[in-house]
């Protein structure tokens, strides 16, 4: 269960932050945090490692950007168009890949995402190497001016929270229980009569849709979409964020995204490509020392250990 007090504290923090930190940086962080949360629904709660999630983030970012810039759609419809793109790409990828297990699943999602990357590289509307530039930000519902970054921040925050709450609801739902059972032991779930492919496909599409929402938000925040958003390294980054923060924890991906985005933001200008190497080192340290990620590790230390089972067990 989500402890109400933590969630409220989290909300207050998010509401106050733009008055302390640079709003554009925070918005970028929220986009990546939602992306990581969506990815975690798959890796952490269903046990599926996708290596193609950049396609959903970047693909939908391009469509959302195109919708706002070329089709002249208002911001809310552009985001909707981007989210739908993520959903459809997710359905396509999922139908092809979902029957594959483990590393084969990861490889197929990677291959499909590479196809999306090459399409984005060649297609004229994406702007190729230059990307999609100067995406306009229309007024929200035609009335709320979003040129002010703090106003934009609150809009993005609302979308982030909506996505986060959807994920929270799914994780703690009867359907979420079935996903967890598939993660824990797929064969056992099958032997109990679950047609696991359907649940996995549903989870995959939801994850892709929310990644699409994150990508569309990102396009509206940065007002540029570049090829790096669909590049495989973006798929790698989201794995990294989720693992560092803690797979299968609610807040882990947010913490992971905060760490990675902050490092890129604050260290990027001084260290350049060294940031990638530092992230790699952090990743290795994580895997070696706290496998469960930061939040996973904290949860384990904070939760008071139950009495050892043996003492309850009457020797029968």
């Amino acid at each position: 269960m989500l402890p109400r007090a933590y969630f409220l504290a989290f909300l207050v923090l998010l509401a106050l932050l733009p008055h302390i930190l640079y709003p554009v940086f925070l918005m970028q962080l929220l986009c990546m945090a939602l992306f990581a949360c969506a990815f975690n629904l798959l890796l952490g709660y269903t046990g599926l490692l996708s290596f193609g999630h950049a396609a959903f983030l970047g693909g939908s970012a391009f469509i959302a950007g195109q919708a706002a810039k070329v089709w002249g759609l208002p911001i809310e419809l552009s985001i909707l168009a981007g989210t739908l793109t993520g959903t459809l790409l997710g359905a396509g990828f999922g139908l092809i890949a979902i029957r594959k297990q483990g590393i084969y699943f990861a490889m197929i999602t990677l291959a499909l995402a590479q196809m999306v990357f090459f399409y984005a590289l060649k297609a004229p509307f994406t702007g190729g190497e230059d990307g999609l530039q100067s995406i306009p930000r229309s007024d929200l519902f035609g009335i709320i001016d979003l040129t002010h970054e703090v106003t934009m921040y609150y809009f993005i925050l609302v979308l982030f929270l909506a996505g986060f709450l959807i994920i929270f609801r799914i994780i703690h739902s009867p359907f979420g229980q079935v996903l967890k059972s598939i993660r824990e032991n797929e064969d056992r779930a099958i032997s109990l009569g679950y047609r696991v492919d359907r649940y996995k496909l549903a989870a995959f599409i939801i994850s892709a849709a929310l990644s699409g929402l994150a990508g569309s938000m990102k396009a509206m925040v940065s007002q540029v979409v570049s090829l790096s958003d669909v590049h495989w390294s973006m798929s790698g980054a989201v794995v990294l964020m989720t693992l560092i923060g803690g797979t299968g924890t609610l807040f882990g991906p947010i913490v992971g995204a905060a760490i990675i985005v902050s490092m890129e933001h604050y260290l990027g200008e001084y260290l350049g490509s060294w940031v990638t190497i530092i992230m790699g080192v952090i990743f290795v340290i994580c895997v070696l020392t706290f496998r469960q990620g930061i939040v996973g590790e904290l949860e384990q230390r904070l939760i008071k250990r139950k009495l050892p089972l043996q003492s309850q067990d009457s020797t029968s």
Binding site: R169, I170, S173, F175, G176, Q177, A202
Partner: peptide, 14 residues
């Protein structure tokens, strides 16, 4: 859950 058709409900709390 499956027997009681509580396997796809993602909108309900657990």
């Amino acid at each position: 859950q499956r027997k009681h058709k509580m396997d796809y409900q993602f909108w309900h709390s657990e």
